[in-house]
Design a protein around this nucleic acid. Structure first.
Lengths: 174, 174
DNA sequence: TCGAATTTTCAGGAGTAACTGAAAATAACG
DNA sequence: CGTTATTTTCAGTTACTCCTGAAAATTCGA
């Protein structure tokens, strides 16, 4: 590979890893986990734990923990190479798949536990008479309904095929 | 107000504030800010800084900072009561509005700055020959396109009317 | 079954985001 | 203006999340 190409690739890779790590913060995913995912995403071949440690300058414990967490999320897979003892990891590469996985996982972890509590808060204040109570009930009920609706829509979007959904959506939003 | 009703309301309010604060974590909004917003959301009347401090047991500095941040986001407004010196705050109460504000704000703060960097990473690696380079370019390009598309859709969704969008969406996802 | 390679765990440490409290600044009133 | 009520700022502290590194556990080949 020409020297210039090599340099371009490494520069771009570095900026990309930094960007993805920074973005992740706001999305409930920790920086290292996002960087490992980004690293595997742009690697043509699966990487071992040691290669990940090396590439990101992180400890073994950190690499191990976050790799396993990525597998739990379904964003990475273990790959066994024949004749090799150590484990390799590869990322799910399809962008739509990644989006669906994150959407489903976050709904499961955050929305689903919250919904019953919201409903409960709404129900417990049904029929209150004074203005504070009535306002509380109305507001929480509206919120509860909206969150339930959003969860249901997210679920269906994540189950749809990109090629069918996106064009229809764009037409709808024209 | 009957004692039982009073108790029901206070219990529900407490659970609701705790829930909203916990949820916020994953949404790039800090816990206190979310709790203040939740408090104002379920209050029938605007509240002063002191009332917020009292209700959430937080310091003046904390209350002030987060109230102003909420105003910056557009989730709260200052309200001046005639004949009163101090400022009061009220929350935007319409759930769809809240959703749109958060969506737009997060796009502006996170996606918009990221997009040019992504594009740049893709462009800088266009035309590389070796497999690593080609894979990197293809992957980052796909990501960049997807993020741009998602941003555009989010923008349009946030600009739409709930009453027109949601039914159409549900039909589409039937 | 033993020993080396590899993975997993976790106690302690580092880094970061958020909060407090009080002082400084500002605004309103007489 | 000077005084007082109110808001804003910010240095120091707290609380928390995440990371390290080494020891323990596991796995696999011989």
């Amino acid at each position: 590979m020409p020297k210039a190409d090599q340099a371009a690739l490494e520069g771009a890779r570095e900026r990309f890893l930094a960007l993805w790590g920074a973005l992740a913060n706001g999305w409930g995913i920790n920086r290292t986990m996002a960087q490992i995912h980004a690293l595997l995403l742009v690697s043509a071949e699966p990487l071992s734990t040691d290669e990940v440690m090396e590439a990101l300058a992180i400890s073994r414990g950190n690499a191990n923990t976050n790799l396993r967490e990525l597998v739990t999320w379904g964003l990475c897979r273990k790959v066994i190479k024949v004749g090799e003892r150590r484990e390799y990891f590869e990322a799910e590469k399809d962008v739509w798949q990644i989006f669906c996985i994150v959407a489903r996982e976050r709904k499961r972890r955050e929305i689903d536990p919250a919904l019953p509590i919201l409903k409960e808060c709404a129900d417990a204040t049904e029929g209150l008479r004074d203005p504070e109570g009535r306002h509380f009930h109305a507001q929480v009920k509206a919120l509860s309904d909206f969150v339930a609706l959003a969860a249901s829509i997210a679920e269906r979007v994540a189950a749809a095929e990109q090629s069918k959904l996106v064009p229809a959506l764009l037409k709808l939003l024209r």
